[in-house]
Design a protein around this nucleic acid. Structure first.
Lengths: 143, 143
DNA sequence: ATTGCTGCAAACTCTTTGCAAGTTC
DNA sequence: GAACTTGCAAAGAGTTTGCAGCAAT
């Protein structure tokens, strides 16, 4: 996503286009490893001039409210964010903070099928995400 | 789980049997709605005499380390706990903090089958949990 | 007796808030 | 110019820590 696309995204969601919002969205997209607010603030500060930490939090909250980014569910009290729009699941490492994406349309279809036939009592499903816990067997240390 | 069973659980995990640990495990089991540390502390204080809040946190951490209870993944910075041992999934309400359990062995078998045939590259699965997001259509306000 | 656990309060970390000054449309 | 956004610093919330005293084995 280039700068023009970022600006158009902001406009699409009726948000005023400010340098801070452009920087936060750019960072959230660039930092693919489900960054924390702090990761995003650090990234911006290392490239650009400056941004207040409180502003990063406010912008992230705005983006989540609008659905531009999503919060990632974790067992940690530090919030992590995800700018990927396509439906996907998450692979969680059982002994590190690493989280990777899993795209699998076959799986999505199987799940949709299953729950179309077998409804959950008193519950209307809107979305299904898998948390797949395990170990990565490559050597990457990306988190 | 009665008191004797709670004591035996603690012994099984080589933990000294203290009134505080008994109270925390009892509370975690009794409070079925994925309680927070604070829920647990409140519950104990309302029945029993006293327990320090720091102690509750330390005991919960010990239990999680031993695998006696689990942390529940949420999008909130407040940690929630789950004392249910049997494999299950979670139903998340998309507009409240309510989380309910879903037991479904058919589903588990389908998933196991699927990933037995279709491995994920560079990843060894240890556990799969579904986060099912949606709306409850009953009238309960339990969270 | 030894080892480990609890209580307490202070410290920490991440996040939120309030408001004046500055930007965007 | 009206409405919204940012920066800053202080406050808030949940959680962790250190250590002396106490309890379990």
């Amino acid at each position: 996503m280039n700068k023009t696309e970022i600006i158009n995204t902001l406009k699409k969601y009726c948000l005023k286009v400010t340098p801070q919002r452009i920087a936060v969205l750019d960072a959230a997209i660039t930092l693919k490893n489900h960054p924390t607010a702090d990761n995003i603030a650090e990234y911006i500060k290392s490239n650009d001039p400056n941004i207040a930490t409180g502003t990063v939090y406010k912008i992230l909250e705005t983006f989540v409210d609008k659905g531009i980014i999503k919060k990632v569910q974790t067992e940690s009290d530090i919030m992590r964010y995800d700018a990927v729009q396509e439906k996907h699941h998450h692979l969680y490492c059982s002994d590190s903070e690493r989280i990777e994406d899993l795209y699998d349309d076959d799986l999505n279809m199987i799940l949709d099928d299953y729950f179309r036939k077998k409804r959950i009592p008193n519950f209307k499903i809107e979305d299904i995400k898998l948390q797949i816990i395990g170990r990565f067997t490559d050597n990457s240390k990306s988190k």
